[in-house]
């Protein structure tokens, strides 16, 4: 049996995913990175994008928000404000959120508001990207 990694994805609403996988691809702050078992311990930031968990020959696609990644030899722990598997993304809702965020950006906002709107824009874009890529 191939070595496995324990992949844990936790959001403020609870644990989204906790299973053994063979490999995981993550959108890190330094680019997309693939993690195999026995990786060197690593801590880095997660950016909104697409995460792919490879388990028993199948791939699970997950849209992520920003957060933190902790990698040890046997485990990958991900702490993020958003994690939705591709099949549970509501495309219409994400599209609506994207438009709302873009409309908000055209208004006059304080720095803090801009940061929070940019955050939600990135989150909805990540969801749309994952969803639309899967279909074609």
């Amino acid at each position: 049996m191939a070595a496995t990694l324990k992949l844990e994805i936790v959001t403020p609403a609870g644990t989204v995913y906790a299973e053994d996988v063979e490999m995981v691809t993550l959108p890190g702050v330094a680019g997309q990175m693939g993690i195999y078992p026995r990786h060197v311990p690593l801590m880095t930031q997660l950016v909104p994008g697409e995460m792919i968990a490879h388990k028993e020959g199948r791939d699970l696609f997950i849209a992520t928000g920003e957060g933190l990644i902790e990698v040890t030899a046997r485990r990958v722990a991900i702490l993020t404000d958003l994690a939705i598997p591709a099949d549970r993304i509501d495309e219409a809702k994400a599209e609506e959120a994207r438009q709302r965020a873009e409309a908000r950006l055209r208004e006059k906002l304080s720095d803090e508001e801009i940061a929070s709107v940019n955050g939600s824009l990135a989150r909805s874009l990540a969801q749309l990207r994952v969803k639309r890529r899967r279909r074609v």
Binding site: V29, A30, V40, P41, L42, M43, T44, G67, L68
Partner: peptide
């Protein structure tokens, strides 16, 4: 678990983000 831990990009940025959160 006392081995070296790699920080990307740097310990400063990761820690700053972590502490803020």
């Amino acid at each position: 678990d006392t081995g070296e831990v790699l920080f990307e990009f740097s310990a400063e940025t990761v820690l700053a983000y972590l502490f803020g959160h």
